[in-house]
Simulated assay, not measured.
Amino acid sequence: MKTIIDSSAEKGDEFTDSIKIQKSVAVHVQCRKNYTRRSTIAAVKRQHEEDQTGTTKISPPRTRARSRSDDNSKTFTARIGFENDLVTAEASYHHDCYVSFLNQLTGVETGRPRDEPLILAMEEIFAYIS
């Protein structure tokens, strides 16, 4: 907790006060490592300095945008909304989150389609055998 609090204070982010009042927080191991890494903290400080001096480097616009409006994309947008340059911030996806973000199906059943006649036939066979 001390390392996370110290990193938050050093970055000057909005989490410092809310983290201080917590007894513990649940954080992915990789997220904690990324958040407390010296190079990440330096990148955030550099970004703050660029924002204050007005010399921010503007990233080129993306050619593809995620148009699906789902909970994962809203959560993701809320987490990175304050970042101007994700490369500088050393942002990365968790593998499972990345897969979920790309392949999320809404309202679609997964797996094989149900073959009702086959299921009924198999039930009759099982009933006959037992």
Rank of each mutant, 00 (worst) to 15 (best):
K2D: 11
T3R: 13
I4C: 01
I4E: 02
I5G: 00
D6K: 06
D6I: 04
S7R: 00
S7V: 00
S8M: 00
A9Q: 06
A9C: 05
E10K: 09
E10N: 15
E10V: 07
K11L: 03
K11T: 01
G12S: 01
D13S: 03
D13A: 03
E14K: 10
F15H: 04
T16K: 05
K20G: 00
I21E: 09
I21A: 05
Q22V: 02
K23L: 12
S24D: 06
A26K: 15
H28Q: 11
H28F: 11
V29C: 14
C31R: 07
R32M: 13
N34G: 08
Y35G: 00
T36W: 00
T36I: 02
R37Y: 09
R37F: 07
R38I: 08
S39W: 02
S39V: 05
T40G: 06
I41S: 00
A42N: 15
A42Y: 07
K45F: 06
R46G: 10
H48I: 07
H48W: 14
H48N: 14
E49P: 01
T53C: 09
G54Y: 00
T55E: 05
T55K: 06
T55P: 01
K57W: 04
I58T: 08
I58C: 04
S59C: 13
P60C: 04
R62C: 10
T63K: 12
R64S: 08
R64C: 10
A65N: 15
R66K: 14
R68V: 11
S69V: 15
D70L: 03
D71C: 09
D71R: 09
N72Y: 10
K74Q: 14
K74G: 06
F76S: 02
F76E: 02
F76L: 09
T77C: 14
T77P: 03
A78M: 11
A78W: 14
R79L: 08
I80R: 05
F82R: 14
N84Y: 05
D85E: 04
L86P: 02
T88K: 11
A89V: 04
E90S: 12
A91P: 03
S92D: 13
H94I: 07
H95R: 10
C97I: 03
V99I: 15
V99D: 13
V99C: 09
S100F: 06
S100K: 08
S100G: 09
L102G: 09
Q104H: 12
L105C: 11
G107S: 04
G107N: 04
V108E: 12
V108F: 12
T110G: 15
R112P: 06
R112G: 06
P113E: 06
D115T: 02
D115K: 02
D115I: 01
D115F: 01
D115M: 01
E116T: 15
E116H: 14
L118N: 08
L118A: 11
L118F: 07
L120H: 07
A121V: 01
A121L: 03
A121Y: 03
E123G: 08
E123C: 14
E124R: 15
E124P: 04
I125M: 06
F126Q: 13
A127F: 06
A127H: 11
Y128K: 14
I129E: 07
